[in-house]
């Protein structure tokens, strides 16, 4: 009984002309949002589940960082809007992707990581009691003291030496 009730409650929001939205990118790379009958505004994209479901539930926020629209599925958008949003999403998802780990050492209450990223060689620091996060599917996420995010997308793709350096931070 309960299952049937739950199914009944699952309502899909179907876009109608009144709530039709469109998105486009300006030349300077800003994402511009237009809702029928309203003025076009510049928005930013917040991924509701950046690691557990990046392609769904995208919150579009205005300059005051208030949500103006929630895109629950990219397929709900027309082709051009989807294209514009995808491009912006790729930017929003920018993280420093680590491709080699040269060294991880401790230095006065900080753990100092010396890595190679797709951005170039980089040093970053994490507090000693802050641990990297395993994302499953062989990825490792490290957040530094400034809030910058470093992603090792595929641990197995790292060199053997680099794998040894991060071994202490893995569950297995």
């Amino acid at each position: 009984m309960l299952g049937q009730d739950a199914n009944k409650r699952r309502v899909r929001i179907v876009s109608s002309p009144e709530n039709k939205v469109s998105l486009r990118r300006s030349e300077s790379g800003l994402l511009l949002f237009k809702k029928a009958g309203e003025e076009e505004i510049s928005v930013s994209v917040q991924l509701c589940f950046p690691w557990s479901g990046a392609d769904r539930f995208l919150s579009l926020k205005n300059s005051d960082l208030k949500e103006v629209h929630l895109v629950s599925n990219l397929m709900d958008l027309d082709h051009d809007s989807r294209d514009a949003l995808l491009k912006t999403m790729l930017e929003e998802q920018f993280v420093f992707e680590v491709i080699d780990v040269y060294d991880v050492r401790e230095e006065f209450e900080l753990r100092v990581w010396n890595v190679r990223t797709t951005f170039g060689d980089r040093d970053f620091q994490t507090p000693l009691n802050s641990w990297p996060r395993e994302l499953g599917s062989g990825s490792l996420l490290v957040k530094d003291v400034n809030g910058d995010v470093y992603l090792i997308r595929d641990l197995k793709a790292l060199s053997k030496k680099a794998q040894e350096k991060v071994w202490a931070f893995l569950d297995e």
């Binding site: 300077s28 790379g29 076009e40 930013s44 960082l65 929003e92 920018f94 995010v149």
Partner: peptide, 22 residues
Amino acid sequence: IPGLSYTRLVLLSGDIEAPHLV
């Protein structure tokens, strides 16, 4: 506008299409 690992700063000009600087 804060992103996952970067922030975007937009200096607005009044024209939504052409900010002074991004």
